[in-house]
Amino acid sequence: MTSQFKTRIAGVGSYLPEQVLTNYDLEKMVETSHDWIVQRTGIVHRHKVAEGEGTSDLVVKAAERALKDANLTAQDLDLIIVATVSGDYRMPATACIVQTKLGAKNVMAFDLAAACTGFVYALHVADQFIKTGVYKNILIAGAENLTKLVNYKDRETCILFGDGAGAMIVSRASNTDENTVISTHCHAEGAHAELLWFEAGGTKIPFSQEVLDSGKHFMKMKGKEIFKHATRTMAAACYEALDAGGKTPADLDWIVPHQANQRITEAVANQFEFPMEKIVSTVHETGNTSAASIPIAFDMAYRDGRIKRGQLILLTAFGSGLTSGSALLRF
């Protein structure tokens, strides 16, 4: 199908909760140390939601900043997509809560669950709505409230995750606009689902006293296997995006990867012989914010002047599923 329109990134925004959870705080909860965490992950601290603060609250604050950057209001939106695995409720969708909190008109709104690849999935979906002429202005957000879902007795997971939200407004580009989304690609490998998952709490193994006592409702991860697959899938997704856009790594101004672990980021960079100074890395101050990590990192680099309009930027991610994806865009 020939695309009728092109997509541009009209605005970006992010929000991190005020409360900070440091490595030294974690030393008091689990057998670990600041130096051990930094050496293995690059993380120094992460942000934690306030009591009573929901995922929708994080999205609204990020979305308001993205709308302001795009010089639009909530009334201009046609669709809201929230990528999250830690929404406010099992139902309704967090996107519906965001819609009413923003004061948007009666628009389509839904959540998308692709874990850490969620934001790239959301961009991929939104791009199709724009290309086909269905909608003109779409809010996509990645947001997580993961500090409430990890076991602070499990060193494998509790040191990694933080809370936050990032958002973009994607809009129909004018015929003369050269700053557009070039390509998006998304994949899944369900055979590896049990490498990173919540075993219980769904309909297959519902909540019960036995589940709570055993801790099966907490996130479980096999770190070494995840590292291997993350490096492989993110590198493959990058090559796919570059090939589709007729570009090489040398053409890129920035790579904005999922902020999972500094060692994973370095491993992906090595695949391309790509300089680390051209990879946006914020994991030291945010930890792994899952679906929120790419838009948060993008916005932070945009606000501090590293990312500028007109630059060629590659997004890449992997996550539970295992999902993976990439997007090549000229911002």
Rank of each mutant, 00 (worst) to 15 (best):
R232E: 13
G190L: 03
E189H: 09
A191I: 07
P206Q: 09
A200R: 00
N179R: 02
E225I: 02
T231N: 11
W197C: 04
F207K: 07
K228C: 03
V211R: 03
T176A: 13
S214V: 07
E189C: 08
H217G: 07
P206R: 01
V211S: 00
K224E: 04
F218H: 05
A191V: 03
K220M: 09
T184Q: 13
E194V: 03
G190A: 06
T231K: 05
L195Y: 04
S183Q: 09
H217D: 02
C186A: 15
H192A: 10
A193H: 10
K216L: 11
K222V: 09
E199I: 14
P206Y: 09
K216A: 15
A200T: 02
S183V: 09
T184I: 14
A230V: 04
M221E: 09
M221Q: 08
G223V: 06
H185V: 14
F198K: 06
D213T: 14
S208N: 04
R232L: 13
R232C: 08
L196K: 03
E178D: 15
V211P: 00
L196T: 00
H229M: 10
S208Y: 05
T233G: 01
T184Y: 12
D177T: 00
F198C: 06
T176Y: 08
T184R: 13
M219E: 04
L212P: 01
W197A: 02
K228E: 03
H187N: 10
I226T: 08
K224N: 03
E189M: 14
H187C: 12
E210Y: 10
K204P: 04
W197Y: 12
G223Y: 07
G202D: 01
L196Q: 04
M221T: 06
I226P: 04
H217F: 06
G202V: 04
S183H: 08
T176G: 07
H217A: 02
G215K: 11
H217I: 02
K220S: 15
N175M: 10
N175W: 12
E225M: 06
L212F: 09
W197D: 09
F198D: 02
I226H: 11
M221D: 05
T180P: 01
S208G: 04
A230C: 06
H217T: 05
W197K: 14
T203V: 11
I182F: 06
H192D: 03
A200Q: 03
A193E: 09
M219I: 07
K222Y: 10
K216Q: 12
E178A: 08
E178F: 11
L212E: 11
P206N: 10
F218V: 06
N179W: 00
S183L: 03
G223W: 11
E189D: 15
I205Y: 13
T233L: 10
H217L: 03
T176E: 15
D177E: 08
K228Q: 04
T180S: 06
K228P: 02
T203A: 12
I226F: 13
G215P: 08
G215L: 09
K228I: 07
G215Q: 13
K228H: 02
